[in-house]
Design a protein around this nucleic acid. Structure first.
Lengths: 124, 124
DNA sequence: TTCTATAGTTCATATGTTGCGAACTATTGG
DNA sequence: CCAATAGTTCGCAACATATGAACTATAGAA
């Protein structure tokens, strides 16, 4: 089993970060990791955004986030603990991650608003 | 020939923006458009980042940027004029585009530094 | 050690996306 | 109408992604 790859901070690229976070599932995972104080395992995300994600797919998504330099994964016994590398990335690309997280929050808020409006329209 | 599609501002998604800008060529195009005051045609980018991009590929890249909501394209005679939709996006996702542009700038500066260091190492 | 359970990874493959040359469309000016 | 210029679309090869099946790694029990 190949060892986990964590790029060094200067090998992290903007394109890599944007690509990793341009997938809705990965963005959701990353947001949860960024918000939650502690570390989270892979399996914590088998359900995300009202969808079931197969384990193999999740594993690939975690690999993508890891190799983009967004998260750090460490084995602890039988599970894998994942944490963000937010503060490192903040050093290299100040403001980038916060801006993306904020934009996602704006979009989620706006999406909820539209959903309510659509429901009202249907009901009324 | 199908008409050009420009999503309305509320249909622009974070994922779409990140995906569009996660490609190095598109990111370079967008940066030039953002920096240049006026509008630019497609063909202004046949050479970018020391690479020749085929016209058909460029056309696809412009379409990707357009349909992600990042640029507006308008026909003027035989050419196409492209402008960014920065200010609109700034309304919907404040700070997102500036943060990405800044991160790209940081990366370009850092890349140049590493290149010089590599050159020195080879020379010395 | 061997057996079992759990958490993730890797493989094979089907499906989706991208890059680019060739052929095409749209516009302008003889 | 013809030619030139600027972009677009088509078709296909190359690359990427999602997922079930098979596998590896670790812990605990017997």
């Amino acid at each position: 089993m190949r060892p986990l790859i964590h790029p060094s901070i200067e090998d992290i690229s903007v394109e890599g970060i944007l690509h990793a976070l341009s997938d809705p599932v990965r963005a959701a995972i990353y947001m949860e990791l960024a918000v939650s104080s502690g570390a989270s395992t892979c399996s914590d995300f088998l359900q995300i955004k009202e969808r079931n994600i197969p384990k193999s797919t999740l594993s690939q998504h975690f690999r993508a986030l890891r190799e983009a330099g967004l998260i750090r994964s460490e084995r602890q016994g039988v599970e894998m603990f994942n944490t963000t590398r937010c503060s490192e990335i903040e050093q290299r690309f100040p403001g980038l991650i916060p801006a993306i997280l904020k934009a996602h929050a704006v979009q989620a808020a706006h999406g909820a608003k539209r959903k309510r409006a659509a429901g009202k329209a249907k009901a009324g």
